[in-house]
Design a protein around this nucleic acid. Structure first.
Lengths: 173, 173
DNA sequence: TATTGTTATACTCTATAACTATA
DNA sequence: TATAGTTATAGAGTATAACAATA
């Protein structure tokens, strides 16, 4: 991809480079021109996404939940009684990759696999009481620290418009 | 308390699961409820970004350019005479990871490293004639096949508003 | 035979340390 | 000593094949 996760402090690409008074004539110093790049939706989308995930992780540091883990907890809470294949595929996670993610959540006693009586191949997923409690705290953290900051930055109306357009892209593009 | 490992008698866990016309008792279910997930900006942002990159790759299949490679070509064209560190850090690519990316572009004769005369440690980056030609074709493909589709989907005004909000997030969040 | 969860594996992207050659 | 490019390497994230248990 174009952008790295926590690369360096944003905006220090030209750190330490001075243009004024460069007697040697080497070293243009200004920030590079992004040019058409700043009009490329994919580029800006990716950089925005990294920023948002980064902030999410900071907000969730106390609960140690990644965006993927949070999405699993939310989906299991909303759809109790579903099996691994259903939860994973809804989130776009491949079944093999879902195993380790679930192992992690289960080892922390946040969710549990229950062998289905109807189809003994299936593992029904449910949140444990601890999982429910953690999810409740997580939602509060996300709302008060994460999403609220986006509201402040964009404004409530804009944030909703943004969400709508992104949903349209995600679903119809 | 924690959830028991033994399956429950599908009481409320499977509530509302059965398809209306399901003759067998095996019930494929309806689509899962995303619930609050569809309001999580990070989640929707990520899915939108994946869709956009996916489409980008399809549009660029003939030229075999990834988003990252395209961004490098664009930036080198706009900022000739810059070295690897400057180009890479502007794009948020770490220097070690930039080496293989450049090796690829150079092996395809799209860009070239030129040892700087001022500082023989530096490699100045330039596009080759082939690189310029390919980039011109790439820009046309992106404009006519990729970005234009986004315009159709969102509308010109909305697309600009989207870009502006994403830029704001990328730069100020 | 088909499906669920799983293992093994591979490939990409990202991240850090350390080397070399210059400065 | 510090910096530019590089190598090696490790860790996530994502992808496919195949196996055991079950249907």
């Amino acid at each position: 991809m174009t952008v790295s996760k926590t690369a360096e402090k944003s905006g220090d690409a030209t750190k330490g480079r001075k243009d004024a008074g460069d007697a040697q004539g080497q070293g243009h110093a200004e920030v590079l021109q992004l040019g058409e790049l700043s009009e490329q939706l994919g580029y800006v989308l990716k950089r925005a996404q990294l920023k948002v995930f980064e902030n999410f992780l900071r907000c969730m540091a106390t609960l140690q939940l990644t965006p993927a883990q949070f999405s699993v907890l939310l989906l299991v809470e909303k759809n109790p009684g579903r099996n691994q294949t259903e939860i994973a595929s809804t989130l776009g996670i491949l079944r093999p990759n879902f195993v380790a993610l679930l192992d992690n959540l289960e080892s922390r006693d946040l969710c549990a696999r229950i062998r289905s009586t109807n189809d003994r191949r299936s593992h029904i997923l449910v949140l444990t009481d601890k999982g429910k409690a953690v999810l409740t705290r997580a939602k509060k953290l996300v709302a008060t620290k994460h999403e609220s900051r986006l509201n402040t930055l964009l404004g409530q109306a804009n944030r909703e418009a943004l969400l709508e357009m992104l949903s349209k892209i995600a679903n119809e593009f």
